[in-house]
């Protein structure tokens, strides 16, 4: 068993005897050091979707599914296509990528993991840390190098996140894909 807060987008839990893939998981602290996790789920048997909330320490049974290393290849509306080392292509719908959509961009080389339920790819997990380039942000704030003051930055795929105020256009940054948060600026 795993706690709700340990589940990530793309993983699958057995709930009431059915396999549910977690398409999105949001962690929030509620009161007195308690926390809740809001999940967007899809039933792998019926295709039905639902939103649900768990306490962060609620226990769920994980289902271990087959995985294969893949890289992002291209977008063929409405499907995203990934390819493995043997040039097999796997198509996946946008809804099944919701938890990682903010980090999908043309030309990305991250080695991802496609998760299979039977023959079908039900999700793709990105590495915990990825590097992306800032396409736009307001000019850097002089004098602040603490990293505590944040500002909004746009990535090459249009997604936005908060970064340290000293980051500039063209900088490469590390992002934690579990939280979607900026980690640090890196040298290209």
């Amino acid at each position: 068993m795993k706690t709700a807060q340990e589940f990530r987008a793309g993983q699958v839990a057995n709930i009431n005897g059915s396999p549910w893939v977690i398409q999105k998981a949001e962690f929030n602290k509620s009161g007195r050091n308690a926390a809740v996790v809001k999940m967007k789920l899809k039933n792998l048997l019926t295709g039905a979707g639902t939103e649900t909330v768990y306490r962060a320490d609620d226990k769920l049974e994980p289902i271990i599914l087959d995985r294969k290393e893949v890289t992002y290849s291209y977008f063929a509306d409405p499907l995203y296509v990934f390819m493995d080392g043997e040039f097999n292509q796997y198509e996946i719908e946008k809804a099944d990528l919701e938890g990682v959509m903010a980090f999908i961009e043309d030309g990305m080389t991250d080695v991802c993991e496609a998760v299979f339920y039977g023959e079908k790819v039900i999700s793709v997990e990105l590495p915990t840390t990825i590097v992306r380039q800032i396409s736009y942000t307001e000019p850097a704030v002089r004098g602040d190098t603490s990293g505590k003051v944040m500002k909004t930055a746009r990535l090459n795929n249009g997604a936005e996140l908060q970064v340290s105020a000293f980051c500039e256009i063209g900088d490469f940054i590390e992002i934690d894909t579990r939280t979607g948060e900026y980690k640090s600026r890196v040298k290209a």
Binding site: W20, N28, S30, G31, R32, V36, K38, T50, Y54
Partner: peptide, 28 residues
């Protein structure tokens, strides 16, 4: 019944089910 908070995310979680074993219906 959760704690009182003015944060935005609260509205997105209010009233949502929490899927439970045994077919029980639990809501936040």
């Amino acid at each position: 019944l959760e704690y009182l908070s003015a944060e935005d995310w609260v509205g997105g979680c209010h009233g949502l089910p929490s899927l439970q074993p045994e077919g029980l219906q639990k809501f936040f």
